[in-house]
Design a binder for these strands. Sequence first.
DNA 1: GGCAATTTAATTGTATACAATACTCTCGAA
DNA 2: TTCGAGAGTATTGTATACAATTAAATTGCC
Lengths: 159, 159
Amino acid sequence: MSKVSPVLLDEQLCFSIYSASKKFNHFYQSALAPFGLTYPQYIALLVLWEDAPLTVHQLGDRLELDSGTLTPLLKRLEKQGWVERVRSRTDERQVLIHLTDMAAAKRDEVYTRIGQCQSLLGMSDDEINIMMTELVTVKQQLDDVSNQRKIAKEVDKRI
Amino acid sequence: MSKVSPVLLDEQLCFSIYSASKKFNHFYQSALAPFGLTYPQYIALLVLWEDAPLTVHQLGDRLELDSGTLTPLLKRLEKQGWVERVRSRTDERQVLIHLTDMAAAKRDEVYTRIGQCQSLLGMSDDEINIMMTELVTVKQQLDDVSNQRKIAKEVDKRI
DNA sequence: GGCAATTTAATTGTATACAATACTCTCGAA
DNA sequence: TTCGAGAGTATTGTATACAATTAAATTGCC
């Protein structure tokens, strides 16, 4: 006759994170309005500004996104003039994502804009680092759990 | 001749949160697989289990979602037998979301399942509370900034 | 060298999100 | 009382996400 404890939305870490993620999305959408970029488009450009060209797969590794999401996203970025998608000649399976001259030219403008908008949040580097460290731990736990399940499934298959 | 500081993906709090949110989504999808629920469907049910019936608007306030997202989501929950959407008789504009008997009957089963899966994460209540407190602060900052912009726009209009 | 297994992108189908708009319904003021 | 403003929901259009499948290219193994 054990009583089940209720699950209350306001006590769920997942919902805090889900909600914060949506707010950040909105914040960046609005910060990047002068450039017409969405948040996922922006982080794709961030990675490319660090190290272009990259294959779709490499970009997906950094962003934790697959080709189902990236292919249409990159086509939109291409249409807007930020990137070029070029089929690799050494390996015809791969598509290399290059930055255009416009993207290179606008990089510092975007960096500056982001810096200004982030300063509005009034968070210290310390506060940010503490949260990121905690988030790394949570994400690691989530990965571990899902890997355990995958391994369990794999083991089941082989029996 | 001031140099613009680069914006590196791995140093962005937004990306940590975005990525954690996706992992949580996946974690719950998998935890709730026996019930065929997605994460957003699950949190809608959580709110309804706390306090049904609710109007679409009231549910949206709790979940921070609008009718554009909730209407189709609730139709899917209805099709799967979790809720009933009933046009209010006292105010024909409103639609009341009621839980079905099946939803009431399965509540404790879902609560139990979630409790078991969360325990796999191995996080203490303290750790969770600390993170949630920090997230509240971040979200408040994000709200403040976007409200400031809204007010600024409003002021501009009136000039 | 030849072919099965693997790798890489693209495609398909389903489910969020959300801005903008449309459509009812309600309520309050002239 | 009636009409216009506002509220509540649904719809439309665009952009993610991601599982599952497809298609083409490459690699590995004999």
